[in-house]
Design a binder for these strands. Sequence first.
RNA 1: GGCCCGUUGGUCAAGUGGUUAAGACACCACCCUUUCACGGUGGAAUCGUGGGUUCAAUUCCCGCACGGGUCACCA
Length: 485
Amino acid sequence: MAEVRTRFAPSPTGYMHIGNLRTALYTYLLAKKQGGKFILRIEDTDRERYVEGAVDVIYKTLRDCGLNWDEGPDVGGDYGPYIQSERMGMYKDYAEELVKKGEAYYCFCTKERLEELAAVQKASNINPMYDRHCRHLSQEEIDKNLAEGVPYVIRQAIPEEGSTTFHDEIYGDITVENSILDDQILLKTDGMPTYNFANVIDDHTMGITHVVRGNEYLSSSPKYNLLYKAFGWEPPMYIHVEHIMKDAQHKLAKRDGDASFQDLLDKGYMTEAILNYILLLGWAPKGENEIFSLSEMIEAFDLSGISKSPAIFDPAKLKAINAHYVRALPLDEFTKIAEPYIRETCKREDIDIGLLCSVLQPRCELFTDIPEQVDFIDKLPEYSLNLYVNKKMKTTLETSLDALKKILPVIEGISEFTQQNVHDELFKLIGEMGVKNGVVLFPLRVALSGKQFTPGGGVELAIILGKEDALSRIKKGIELLSAAI
RNA sequence: GGCCCGUUGGUCAAGUGGUUAAGACACCACCCUUUCACGGUGGAAUCGUGGGUUCAAUUCCCGCACGGGUCACCA
């Protein structure tokens, strides 16, 4: 079997939708799984939509994700150029070849006539389709128009009868009647190919064997097949993938705020987690494992796992996967990434970042949550005394006050303020008091942080804050509780 | 509207002509614990609907409903 060649062919919009990224991922995996080539082609035939710097967004996203291409605009290859606008010369020739074969024809219809036609069809409840007015023009008329420089397009001559079947690897054989297929435009008035035409030419001339693309192309695939047939070419294998939805009836769209790779990055998700999650959105592994590195994905990926129905994007699951990756990070790496987030709200220089990170990591799902988690360190927030009351711990305002009063001299008495010493002394106190750990440690944690949830327990917080600050916060707690009781 | 595609717990989903219908996330309970989290154990929760075929249908066929896609000189 010939070498597998797949391609990712985005148009440069400056925005990488995660649905597109997922398509790129599947395309990449499909090629790599079979030791084939993954090709990047930029489809920029729409000049009006050109966005400065958009190609770089594509490069950067793909590279960050590790989806490195074997051939492409910047790395070259034997099938270039890899930017559609640089391949302009060839499309016209191919279109004219089709005209000669009788598989396509010149159309001189004006925009006005087309609009009128569409209006009439719509009014009479007929499906809007080109009426093939120019399909039967005499050669004299055609030559005359051409000679006079009348603007024209080239349209595909769809067979007037019969049906067309194409095969999709996910959906199987799909058959449609030719009578419902429009004589679509192949070459525009400006000489540029339409997407549908350029795609076929490019895929064929680049030797693409498998086409992975969004489900929206399912309906136009018969026309693609007819085009391949008209040229006498072998069509590629088609793999159509369903959309990623925001909910049951809406696709995940730009305005939803988390539709692009960059949006997700901005929200604090890790690249590996995003890639891992989108892999699972529309593809199911054979085993029970759901966590995959890129190389593991290549190993595990197969077409049979691709879903036929749309998948709803679930931020909760993404977050869970992200948490998995955060926890799997070596501590020093976690620290490196977490520090800037910590510094957003915690400016104190005298704290032990290493200790803070070691307790923070298991409680961190998203890096962007960190600023809020550590904001109590610089300044004790105002807090509700209700925090001291915990049914399960059996703590009340009274027991908390009592505990804090007993903790105070113990902390004061520790000369070498280390985690070990603080731990030992407090547990000695707990032993003397004959109570459960929580009765002492729970109020301590509250007094030190003023928060319900904290990175670490009372001992760790005391060390992070330092003896002096810890003492003043305990005193503050005693003061508040005394006043309330 | 025509045509095409789809429909298994709240979400992602595996799977089968006879199964206790996997697993993950979320949820609930309990355990562990220095709170929360992490970890562990357990729980609740699913085959859209109506017909047919069959000894047997979630699985095969048809209709219906619902959802999506598409019908551009956009890609």
